[in-house]
Amino acid sequence: MMNMKLVSLFFLLLTTAACKKSVSNSNLQAETFLNVSYGSNSLQKMDVYLPAKRNADTKVVVFIHGGSFIGGDKSDYTALVEELYKKNFAVLNINYRLVDGSGLETNPITHKKSSILIQDQVIDVSAAVDFVISKVEDWQVSNSKIAVVGHSAGATLALLYSYGDKNTGKVKAVANLAGALDQTFTDLPNYNLLPPPILEFGYRYTGFEVSPTNEQYYKAISPLYVANAGKKINTLTIFPENNVVGAFPKQNRATFDAFTNRLNQLGISNKFVQIPGADHSFTTAGSVQLMFIELLTFLGSSY
């Protein structure tokens, strides 16, 4: 989870950031709508930020929070989202259904299947995007200039949706802020000796035990393997230099380089940026500022 007090401080200091603005003759006022439902589940809600003087060219950003797929909340990222909104983007900050995280801290670990899997969360992202498209006339924003941005688990969901079958040209750009890119375990030496919570996370995420026989289900939640030449979505990857996420493996630069190489092989336009000294949540001095400038530059020119 990001330290939002620190984020807010950096944003107060942030006075220069490139952002392409649409020309508008609209007299519309800025509007904010909180906890708007996009589905029937109590977690399927979004906060809607509509800038003043918007029109059919106003770019749209769907933001997806992190939290290891089992936690987190859109409110954790309100400061970041509001800064995007101030830069003339229409921003939808979404919640989504969560994988069951109960019993992961018990000793021994509780082994149980979750009723919500990562694939269900991708369905939620799809539903949120479809809801946004259904509202563009009411909100008076673009129906074609739509990007998804996520941090950590949210970045993984953003990538899985963008490269997946449900994105039928709806989203044109995706920004990955320290997402989990390869969630396969069985290619690691002695993978069965990984900490029990990690193996249980895999089971909760997919509904299948970690084993070579079930590798396909883990590749299906790994953007490294889901990326394909049929979905050439402009992609930004921001890697914090010190990207440690608990005991989770494959959060290092080598995994991110493998992802970049994969996108290049597929002919997918992409940019890789490493933020020096940054931790996973971009809480180190200056790292949020650098990340935000890169994000703004990408969103201003990529779609």
Rank of each mutant, 00 (worst) to 15 (best):
L6K: 08
L6G: 06
S8N: 10
F11W: 07
L12R: 11
L13E: 04
K21N: 14
K21M: 12
S26W: 12
Q29C: 15
L34T: 08
N35T: 08
S37L: 09
G39V: 04
S40L: 14
K45A: 02
D47Q: 00
L50P: 08
R54S: 01
N55Q: 09
V61G: 04
G71Q: 01
G71E: 03
G72V: 04
D73G: 05
D76P: 01
T78D: 12
E83L: 09
L84Y: 10
L84E: 04
V99I: 12
S114C: 08
A128S: 00
I133Q: 09
S144E: 14
H151S: 04
H151V: 00
G154W: 01
A155I: 13
Y161E: 08
S162F: 06
Y163R: 13
G164F: 04
T168L: 02
K170D: 05
V171E: 10
K172D: 02
G179I: 07
G179R: 01
A180Q: 10
L181E: 03
T184M: 03
D187C: 02
N190Q: 12
L194W: 07
E200S: 06
G202D: 04
G207L: 07
E209Y: 15
V210A: 10
N234G: 08
T237L: 15
T237C: 13
E241W: 08
N242P: 04
G246T: 11
G246W: 03
G246S: 09
P249A: 13
A254Y: 06
T255C: 13
D257Q: 14
R262A: 01
L263W: 02
N270H: 15
V273T: 15
Q274F: 08
A278R: 07
S281T: 14
S281F: 04
T284D: 06
S287L: 03
T297Q: 03
G300Y: 07
G300T: 11
Y303T: 01
